[in-house]
Each structure stands twice: as structure tokens, then as C-alpha cells.
């Protein structure tokens, strides 16, 4: 465990709880893509199946359980409890266009052709693009609530911090996982445009709105 990874994990945790709290406090999930949340739930469920087969540490297991539970809770709030506030007209990204190619790629490019490993690979690839429905929704409406921007910033920062973690681990531990690194780069690149808008607008107290 190094500082980049710890701060990355905490940033990831913060992002999920900022979103949950936003929905819970405002009793509304307006502006949030339910499709991205379903994809994230799928990401955590397929990646953390090793909870049942392999124990690493209390920290590791606890975080996995929290990530699965909190994301499933977000999906529940969006699609059941506060369904009336869900902005489905603007959440029109076709997730099968992500899930099917990513599933195919996981079968073709993986470290080991075993069920658990293929699901892990699927999860890593899917995570890298899971935010696209949310970004698509923002581009359709042309704006995002400030709290949603904070959520996205924390969520994007997490994988960027993991990239620093992988550089650190490569030099100091000889650790290198090509699949995770490539997917992590793709994931971080997808946030670049948003990061720019966040830094130039939201940090200066302005609402995130896209130029018409």
C-alpha cells in the first residue's frame, strides 16, 4: 500500500458516498445517469467475486463489500425509491454498445482463460468506459449540478491516482499489470475534458455548463 493507492481508494469511496448522499438528501437523482450506476454495479460484482475464494486483508475485503453495497444502494435509490425523479429521457446511452464489445474483448485479451479471470478482465475493461453514459447525459443537457461535478472529479481522480500507484509499484516492487494499466489510461483520458471544465469553472464557484 502506497500513498497514491490509499488516496485513490479514499477518493473512490468519497465519490460513491457524495453521490449517495446527494440523492438521499435531495430525494432526487436528477442529472445522474442510472445506466452508469448499473455499469458500476456490474463492475464491482464481477470483479469482487474473489471475496469468496481469496482473502487478502481486512481492508481489502471491507472495501470490496462497501463498494458493492453502496453501488447497489445507489441503483436501488435511482430505479425504485426515487424512480419518479430519474431523468430517463436524457439517459439514452445504449449500454449494450459497451457491454457486448467489452465482454468480447475480455474473452480475447486476458491473463488467464478461467471464469474468474475473464470476469475480472471484463470488469476492468467495463470500468474504463462505464462513465460514458454519465458524460453523454451531461453533454445532452449541457450542464451538471455542482455536487455531481464533485462526484465526477473524485471518481476520475481515483483512477488517475492509481496510475501514479502503478508507476510507483513498477519501480519499487516490479509490479506491472498491462491490462489494468491500459484500461486505467483509457479511463483517465475519458475524464480529461471534464477535468478541464472542473478546474476552470467549478473550482472558481461557477456551475459546470457546456458552451452551446
Amino acid at each position: 500500500m502506497n500513498i497514491f493507492r490509499l488516496v485513490g481508494d479514499l477518493s473512490h469511496l468519497l465519490a460513491i458516498f457524495v453521490l449517495l448522499l446527494k440523492i438521499w438528501k435531495s430525494r432526487s437523482c436528477a442529472g445522474v445517469s442510472g445506466k452508469s450506476q448499473i455499469l458500476f454495479a456490474l463492475v464491482f460484482i464481477t470483479r469482487y467475486l474473489d471475496l469468496f475464494t481469496n482473502f487478502i486483508s481486512v481492508y481489502n475485503s471491507l472495501m470490496k463489500v462497501i463498494f458493492i453495497a453502496s453501488t447497489v444502494a445507489t441503483v436501488y435509490l435511482m430505479y425504485i425509491k426515487f424512480k419518479a425523479t430519474y431523468d430517463s429521457n436524457h439517459d439514452t446511452f445504449r449500454i449494450e454498445f459497451l457491454v457486448v464489445p467489452v465482454g468480447g474483448l475480455a474473452f480475447l485479451v486476458n491473463h488467464d482463460f478461467t471464469p474468474l479471470e475473464i470476469l475480472w478482465t471484463f470488469s476492468i475493461y467495463l470500468e474504463s468506459v462505464a462513465i460514458l453514459p454519465q458524460l453523454f447525459m451531461i453533454s445532452k443537457t449541457g450542464e451538471a449540478e455542482t455536487i455531481t461535478s464533485h462526484y465526477l472529479f473524485a471518481l476520475g481522480s481515483y483512477r488517475a491516482l492509481y496510475l501514479l500507484n502503478w508507476i510507483y509499484r513498477y519501480y519499487f516492487e516490479g509490479y506491472f499489470d498491462l491490462i489494468a494499466v491500459v484500461a486505467g489510461c483509457v479511463q483517465t483520458i475519458l475524464y480529461c475534458d471534464f477535468f478541464y471544465l472542473y478546474i476552470t469553472k467549478v473550482m472558481w464557484g461557477k456551475k459546470l455548463s457546456l458552451p452551446a
Binding site: 474473489d50 481469496n54 487478502i56 479471470e117
Partner: peptide
């Protein structure tokens, strides 16, 4: 590549 048993990251 890493095998499932070595995965300590989240």
C-alpha cells in the same frame, strides 16, 4: 500477467 490470487488492488 498476474493470476487471480495475486490481486490485492481494488
Amino acid at each position: 500477467g498476474l493470476k487471480t490470487k495475486d490481486k490485492d488492488e481494488l
